[in-house]
Design a protein around this nucleic acid. Sequence first.
RNA 1: CGGGGCGUAGCGCAGUCCGGCAGCGCGCAGCGUUCGGGACGCUGAGGUCGGAGGUUCGAAUCCUCUCGCCCCGACCA
Length: 573
Amino acid sequence: MRMAKLFGRTVREVPADAEFPSHQLMVRAAMIRPLGAGIYSLMPLGYRVIRKVEAIIREEMDRIGGQEMLMPFVHPAEIWKETDRYYLVGPELTRFKDRGSREMVLAMTHEEVVADLLRTDVNSYKQLPQIVYHLQSKWRDEPRARGGLIRVREFTMKDSYSLDMDEAGLDESYRAHEVAYNRIFNRFGLDFIKVGADVGMMGGSKSEEYMAFSPMGEDTILICENGDYAANREVAVFQSFPQSDEEMLPLEEVETPNASTIQGVADYLNVPLSHTAKAVFFMAGEQFVFVVIRGDLDVNETKLRNLLDAGDLVPATAEQIAAVGAVAGYASPIGVHDATVVVDQSVANARNLVAGANKHGYHVINSNVGRDYEADYIADISAATAGHLCPNCGQPMIARRAIEIGNIFKLGTRFTEAMGATYLDQNGKSHPVVMGSYGIGVGRSAATAVEQYHDDRGIKWPITIAPFHVSLLSIGKDADVLEACDALYDSLTASGVEVLYDDRNERPGVKFNDADLIGNPIRLSISRKTLDADEVELRLRTDDQSINVPQEGIVPHIRQLIDGLMAEYVSLA
RNA sequence: CGGGGCGUAGCGCAGUCCGGCAGCGCGCAGCGUUCGGGACGCUGAGGUCGGAGGUUCGAAUCCUCUCGCCCCGACCA
């Protein structure tokens, strides 16, 4: 591609709203352009990256026997009603009516469509197992789209669906996807990890996420450095604190003026936070939920929601708190009524904690669950943080931020049962098809690569997904320099090398800066000086030194260089 | 949904408090000088000041409504 003809220009200044490095750099490099909140055009340069990402996904999905197809982006609402998701999913599912007043939705995923296809096209065990996949637009009306391609509302996702006769078959399909996903993300060059995740309202039996490390990540993951545990903070567990063997001491009320925060109470009474019981209030529908947790821990709302099997869980209001007899700032379950009391195991394992007295300006010391108040649930509902002990080996865990780039999910028969997608086994007996679903964010993967590979000058694409292998720059305006560049461009292109040829009438500084910004892995330049020496200057985007190589044999040289760079990713895969 | 902020040339911004010629930088076009890390000079094009209504002799500026966008929180594959 000749840059003089390229649609889209690089820009020096970035839109004020771009926060993430990948957002800024991809806009500056003319790869993406916003159309609305969370809605982007992929410019020619950016779309080349996306197509490479998609090509790698296709290769690896085909390798595990996936069959590519394409399912619609607009669905009749009816199938979403059949599985209840029409009602369960919030406003991120966009609903509308067509001209005939028929209810429709914009696809955010395709389980229903797959199940619908199964009803008509798969009736026999002879037609199973199967893996189907597609690369299709999705629309999720996120409350807060941000960060360029990291979190958008319209996006392309690879979603695949495994269709098996039974759980054993699902296990196999799931493992096949693990293999494929490992290869895919390694070929993208990403630094990632697979972690345990929440199954949420999808109701499946197992879910794991592929997480790429990035300080810009919206998720926190807990990792045991021994390699025997890694989980999203939403579900991460840790070794519970040992049961205290202290004697229970008499409950005693103490005055704690102006100590309405747990830290304030701990300071005032000069006890560690871990020796206090903190009260947190939620409403699960109409039910008031009174959570008691050790003062040094935070509630993990996902764990709490799963424990209570509560669809929605929202913080309680001041009125709701007062209505059960609790005094905000000085609250404990002692003497409250009409509340579901959930006690974290950290509190149950401790003795003689400081807690609220439900009286303004007073706390109690030596509170003990079971003696001073009853728990409806005693469970692990606390959020794991760095330093908590690995549930498997007991070593302290670390916490890292990460971007979710893919997930794999054992759905089971949640959808096929609801939609009557069954097959007949050898004995003529009917069973629901057992499904798995597996996603990869295409644009997000590309943007995540930028997050992981950039410097202050621009992007440093892994060669597997770079828009071009080579940036070729003509330096100066001498006719024979330009001729030499044209010739090199033609011969490289003819041999299959992808070249972005900066043939613009620009000063060298502009060209160098744009080449660094766009981030193709190999840069070649020809100038008066190099031409006179029958050489071409070569520089890798990852290096800060350039070398001159003879013009003679340059094409095979570059081909070899590309193969070598590619090999690094293939060997990982 | 709650809180905060911003909409002025393609991009980044000033001007708004205190009403009175719509500006600056980058980019863009032309000419000239320059040419190995985002050059310089001259000339020029480019604006419903997000939109609607109101106040006023006069509104980018004040008032009301509205739309869009961003940030924090809530929520969420």
